[in-house]
């Protein structure tokens, strides 16, 4: 074999300078097919990256400094408790809501996966996801209002004597985030749970593991990465809550979330520079939370949730 190689003619066309540019690009994976990516890429660059960078630039040129470079927006954001407090207001709402939604979704998804007629339930639960927060808010104002059916039923059953206040406060926003956020979490987690090979649980039970042990040792570790991703995606929605915070919350007080602050600056005070600064801070907090969750879940197993081949 090696002898044959040595005897091979030395004129073999191996010279790299003979390879055309397109061939060299193709060798690195860049060819006409890759170019199909360009329109979408340019679009995202123009409508996402450029605005984000522009917003960042804008935020560093405060309006009240007549457009001169400076950190004035960020300084004034973090020096006014009423404004920077919105970060905590939003987190106080978004973190518990997301955790509650996930905590409710996991046991229900584990039960529903055994159901043969899943489709009906999942169809019912998809409705609030489709309707969105605005319609949910209007419905909640009717249903949970002091004269709404919910209070009437509780009063008829003598659970309460006077109507409970469930809208125009923190509770209202919390409930609205559960009504529209729970189905979202549930669907995501159901699809993760369904991805776990049922024979793994069967194998665990054959080895003597009861329901609790199966959950702790098999399901939870295999769901871990999925739960982290669900947390992130659900958290984005809860963290950027706007319509329900205005409509069923009390937007000047307990549910003055950061999105309201950003909107207020940009669209009511016409200070796009400050609005952009708050928007950037909002994105920053979101990215920090996502990074923490992903970091925390990095230690978990994240391969396929199936046993062996097949």
């Amino acid at each position: 074999m090696s002898a044959a190689m040595e005897r091979a003619p030395l004129t073999a066309p191996a010279a790299p300078d003979r390879v055309s540019l397109s061939q060299r690009l193709a060798r690195r994976g860049l060819d006409v097919t890759t170019l199909l990516l360009m329109p979408a890429l340019l679009f995202v660059l123009a409508l996402f990256v450029y605005p984000a960078l522009y917003g960042f630039w804008l935020s560093l040129h405060p309006m009240n400094a007549n457009g001169v470079f400076g950190f004035g927006n960020y300084i004034s954001f973090f020096s006014d408790r009423y404004v920077y407090g919105t970060i905590f207001t939003t987190l106080e709402l978004a973190v518990p809501v997301t955790l509650v939604n996930i905590a409710l979704s996991v046991p229900i998804a584990l039960r529903v996966r055994h159901l043969r007629k899943q489709r009906l339930l999942t169809t019912i639960l998809i409705i609030p996801v489709t309707l969105g927060t605005v319609l949910t808010a209007q419905g909640m104002l009717n249903f949970y209002g002091p004269l709404g059916w919910f209070n009437r039923i509780l009063m008829t059953l003598h659970v309460i004597d006077a109507p409970v206040r469930l809208v125009h406060n923190f509770t209202g926003v919390f409930l609205s985030q559960i009504v529209s956020g729970f189905p979202f979490c549930f669907m995501l987690i159901l699809s993760y749970v369904s991805g776990i090979d049922p024979s793994l649980e069967q194998a665990a039970s054959m080895l003597g593991a009861g329901p609790a042990a199966r959950f702790r040792h098999i399901l939870l570790p295999l769901l871990g990465a999925g739960l982290a991703i669900t947390f992130c995606l659900a958290f984005v929605q809860a963290f950027s809550v706007f319509p329900s915070a205005v409509l069923v919350g009390s937007p000047s007080g307990p549910t003055r979330v950061i999105a309201i602050a950003a909107y207020h600056a940009a669209y009511e005070q016409y200070d796009y520079s400050m609005g952009s600064a708050i928007a950037i801070i909002m994105g920053g907090v979101q990215i920090i939370v996502v990074a923490i969750v992903m970091k925390a879940s990095a230690a978990l197993y994240r391969g396929p949730a199936a046993g062996g081949k097949g």
Partner: peptide
Amino acid sequence: KKLVMLLFVLPLIIPPFTYGIPLASV
């Protein structure tokens, strides 16, 4: 490719307000 993927993921995990306000001003 990883960078491109990240670029496409970001609009899905960043709050719409964060890029919505600068986008509107652009």
